[in-house]
Design a protein around this nucleic acid. Structure first.
Lengths: 247, 247
DNA sequence: GGCGCGATATTTGTCGGACTATTCTAGGGT
DNA sequence: ACCCTAGAATAGTCCGACAAATATCGCGCC
């Protein structure tokens, strides 16, 4: 297993300069600092302000354009695209969203997606999982149980579990949603951690999902996952509604 | 309306040179011409072969990297990423997939995604659609009914309908799946057109979905959409299994 | 003989500047 | 009032050089 040293959100993407510029601009856009329709300063000035070469700035813009965040045209300049063109399910875009605190609405929408996708995925996984995947799920849950969600290792194990369920569907397009699901899972935990008194043991729900998948029972797996997500959503909502009590 | 000379998949993206290079390489990758793990020829030689400047080639690579298709590192070069890192739901990637004929497996997986997402979306749409969206759905179906799926206008209307349903969920992440859903919808029709004798009138199914959404009945909308997708899948599967009878 | 460690070569990354293509705009002509 | 042309602003493309990272190989040490 790898180091997981960085809290992600800019890990691989920002090792090179063009990546970090893309991240900086991306965060500025998804956080609303640059509204859709806004025109970015032109390449010459912008690269000068950022103290990078124009080539680097341009490559950063290409990255953002590839993710639907901006559109460039001669004379007009580069402008922020309408929100509905944004590739919200792209892992980087999602990471940028979570770099500045995401809005409650966005989080709810992500949960809604989870609620749609994960129960169905669990059902498919119950039909198609192979032994290795089953073993990975079990191992993840064991780690999660011992490490608990208070540790990064435990949270990673949680994500691993949900990830493996998606993988076990043998559906490649579906699996690409793992980053989105993973983001939702991560933030569930973060919000819950802020209100430790609300902490509910998540293991029973997880084991029920696992058992159903292991037993090859699609309907049971779907229901169990539905319950799991519902409860997680309730906890998260409660944490959001409750007054902040962190530092 | 524009020429529609190209079957899309390169419309907006390939107006600039870097875009068309990205598309060319992207197609070569998703079609299996470059396998995951393969190392692309280095920037100097590659840009020379393609008769473009190194800057343009690099920008093209940035685009592919942003979509998860490749990864670049000094000394090692640029190599095709593992399939599970590909952003299969990105509109461009999807378009590249359909530029060369997609595999039957991939199509089936896309359908499975549709089967998961669209019924749930229809249910949400029944609860949340506003009048304007409802009107757009009705208008799309009217056009579809008159133009039929034999014309591009009819097919566009079909996609519009499904698109508006997704939009009416008021769930932004969900809406970004419209390009994926749209791709599946488009290819349903293409396959069916190859076997015109199988043509089944798709309008009753669509109107039932519409009526349920209009009436604000989530469960009914979900069931109607489920039926619609199921029937479309059956038709498509039949067309795939049947012997080819085009030129 | 094995193992670490540093030199080296290869490749991407970054830089700066020049020229081109596109397209919006404004002004002048019809 | 309209069209059309000229100009200006901006992204797009090209070029050539140097910097940084890193896999690989060979040397020397243990």
């Amino acid at each position: 297993m790898s180091k997981a040293k960085e809290a992600d959100g800019g890990g691989a993407a920002s090792r090179r300069i063009h990546g970090s510029i893309a991240r900086k601009l991306g965060v500025a856009i998804v956080s609303g600092q640059h509204q859709p329709g806004d025109v970015l300063t032109n390449e010459i000035d912008a690269s000068e302000q950022l103290q990078v070469s124009r080539s680097v700035y341009r490559e950063a813009i290409r990255i953002l354009a590839a993710k639907g965040l901006v559109e460039s045209r001669p004379k007009t300049g580069t402008r922020v695209s309408a929100r509905n063109r944004w590739q919200l399910l792209d892992p980087d875009v999602l990471a940028w969203f979570f770099e500045s605190e995401p809005s409650e609405d966005f989080l709810r929408e992500l949960y809604e997606l989870r609620m749609i996708v994960e129960p169905a995925a669990a059902a498919l996984a119950a039909q198609r999982r192979d032994d290795a995947q089953l073993e990975r799920m079990r191992a993840a849950l064991v780690v999660m149980q011992h490490a608990t969600l208070a540790s990064e290792a435990g949270r990673a194990a949680d994500r691993d579990f949900h990830d493996t369920v998606l993988e076990a569907t043998s559906n490649a397009p579906l699996f690409t949603l793992s980053s989105s699901i993973g983001a939702a899972v991560r933030w569930t935990t973060i919000f819950k951690q802020r209100h430790s008194e609300l902490a509910r043991d998540p293991m029973p729900d997880h084991w029920k999902v696992f058992d159903a998948i292991a037993a090859g029972r699609p309907d049971q797996a779907r229901e169990a996952m539905e319950r799991l997500v519902t409860l997680a959503l309730e906890d998260t909502r409660a944490s959001i509604d409750a007054p902040e009590d962190r530092v």
